[in-house]
Amino acid sequence: MRTGNSSLRNSLFAILDKRADEISPRMHDILIGLYEDWLWLDERIDAISTEIEEISQYDGGCQLLMSIPGIGPIISTALVSAIGNGSAFERGRDLGAWFLASTAQEISPS
């Protein structure tokens, strides 16, 4: 089977049918349930992504941030939600220091 989500989606039922004698009915039901969960999660991700894109289109701070190359709806809404309009920072370097400190905490081992 080829790698990638679409390959698995397109061939899952064929695989289950072909291997029906090797897979117990319980395992078959579990795999189908997981497949349905996967589809639901994809729908949820699409809905949230659409919502984020809509928010970014109507928020002035997001619009300003998205004028920077490489910054799109997800990054702009995350940054606006984290720092608001940036008035808590006296200088740009303060924002940079805050950003480095927050990302360092997330990637450091606990």
Results as ranks from 00 to 15, higher is better:
Asp21Leu: 15
Glu22Lys: 13
Ile23Gly: 13
Ile23Gln: 12
Ser24Phe: 00
Ser24Lys: 00
Arg26Tyr: 10
His28Glu: 13
His28Ser: 14
Asp29Ile: 08
Asp29His: 10
Ile30Pro: 04
Ile30Ser: 05
Ile30Cys: 06
Leu31Val: 15
Leu31Asp: 09
Ile32Thr: 14
Ile32Ala: 07
Gly33Phe: 11
Tyr35Glu: 15
Tyr35Cys: 07
Glu36Trp: 02
Asp37Ser: 13
Trp38Arg: 11
Leu39Thr: 03
Leu39Met: 12
Leu39Tyr: 07
Leu39Arg: 10
Trp40Thr: 15
Trp40Lys: 10
Trp40Asn: 14
Leu41Thr: 12
Leu41Pro: 05
Asp42Tyr: 09
Asp42His: 11
Glu43Lys: 12
Glu43Asn: 13
Glu43Leu: 09
Glu43Tyr: 05
Arg44Ser: 13
Arg44Tyr: 08
Ile45Asp: 03
Ile45Trp: 12
Asp46Leu: 05
Ala47Trp: 08
Ala47Ile: 04
Ala47Thr: 10
Ile48Phe: 02
Ile48Trp: 03
Ser49Gly: 15
Thr50Glu: 13
Thr50Cys: 11
Ile52Thr: 10
Ile52Leu: 06
Glu53Cys: 05
Glu53Leu: 05
Glu53Tyr: 03
Glu54Lys: 07
Glu54Gln: 11
Ile55Thr: 03
Ile55Phe: 12
Ile55Cys: 10
Ser56Trp: 02
Gln57Trp: 04
Asp59Trp: 00
Asp59Lys: 00
Asp59Met: 04
Gly60Ser: 07
Gly60Glu: 13
Gly60Phe: 07
Gly61Phe: 05
Gly61Cys: 02
Cys62Trp: 01
Cys62Phe: 03
Cys62Val: 04
Gln63Lys: 12
Leu64Asn: 03
Leu65Arg: 04
Leu65Tyr: 00
Ser67Asp: 08
Ile68Glu: 00
Gly70Thr: 02
Ile71Ser: 00
Ile71Glu: 01
Ile71Arg: 02
Ile71His: 02
Gly72Thr: 01
Gly72Ala: 12
Pro73Ser: 10
Pro73Glu: 03
Ile74Gln: 09
Ile74Met: 06
Ile74Lys: 13
Ile74Asn: 05
Ile75Phe: 10
Ile75Cys: 08
Ser76Trp: 10
Thr77Ile: 01
Leu79Trp: 09
Val80Thr: 03
Val80Cys: 12
Ala82Asn: 04
Ala82Thr: 09
Ile83Asp: 04
Gly84Phe: 01
Gly84Lys: 02
Asn85Tyr: 09
Asn85Val: 14
Asn85Cys: 07
Asn85Trp: 04
Gly86Ala: 06
Gly86Asp: 06
Ser87Asp: 15
Ser87Arg: 14
Ala88Phe: 04
Phe89Val: 11
Phe89Gly: 05
Phe89Arg: 01
Glu90Cys: 06
Glu90Lys: 09
Gly92Leu: 08
Gly92Met: 07
Gly92Arg: 09
Gly92Glu: 15
Gly92His: 10
Asp94Glu: 11
Asp94Tyr: 03
Leu95Tyr: 15
Gly96Pro: 00
Gly96His: 11
Gly96Tyr: 08
Gly96Val: 03
Trp98Cys: 01
Trp98Asn: 03
